[in-house]
């Protein structure tokens, strides 16, 4: 019971948890792995060039510790990328859109269609390669309330955008 003068029966309200989440495209997992790998290769390149060109002496223990830490973090990041992919998902309901993310710090954001200011579909060069799109949804609520859904396959993002814009338009009348 949320309030004192209960006008509506809360159990009849649609519950978000009833709607199944749609997960992102499996190619997005590949792109994320690729991104992680590239980042760690760059870090490795920097570390190696320091080792080769350093004007000062590097203690032996650092020469052992640094690569092990690098490897450990690399494996952890790959694991994190995988877990993150498993958790990310979105749900389209009749009147709102939900996006869930976060491995450790879980967050679920819901935006009603009648509060959407505008929506954009974006595609970077790597995403084009993998035939992926990103959907960005903006409300008037500032940065915290905008949604970015990455890794949508094919023209799914375009479809979603059209659907959302249509719904947002209907609500205005």
């Amino acid at each position: 019971m949320l309030f004192q003068n209960n006008a509506i029966d809360l159990t009849t309200l649609p519950q978000l948890e009833d709607t199944p989440m749609e997960s992102l495209s499996p190619s997005y997992l590949k792109v994320s792995y690729l991104g992680t790998a590239i980042f760690f290769l760059i870090v490795a390149a920097i570390l190696i060039s320091i080792r080769l060109f350093a004007e000062f002496d590097i203690p032996t223990w650092i020469e052992w510790i640094a690569p092990s830490v690098w490897l450990l973090l690399f494996i952890l990041s790959l694991w994190h990328t995988y877990e993150d992919f498993q958790i990310q998902g979105f749900a389209i309901r009749e009147r709102d859109l939900t996006y869930r993310s976060g491995v450790f710090f879980r967050s679920t954001t819901v935006i009603p269609y009648n509060r959407i200011q505008h929506a954009e579909v974006k595609q970077g060069p790597i995403e084009r390669r993998f035939n992926l799109q990103r959907l960005e949804i903006y409300t008037a609520g500032g940065d915290g309330s905008d949604l970015y859904i990455p890794g949508l396959p094919g023209n799914r993002a375009d479809q979603l955008k059209d659907y959302i814009i249509e719904k947002a338009g209907k609500n205005e009348q």
């Binding site: 450790f104 710090f105 954001t109 009603p112 609520g141």
Partner: peptide, 14 residues
């Protein structure tokens, strides 16, 4: 006046 709703959980809260 609400624009969007976010539910957050830290590991402890989970």
């Amino acid at each position: 006046k609400v624009q969007s709703v976010t539910l957050k959980q830290s590991p402890f809260q989970q």
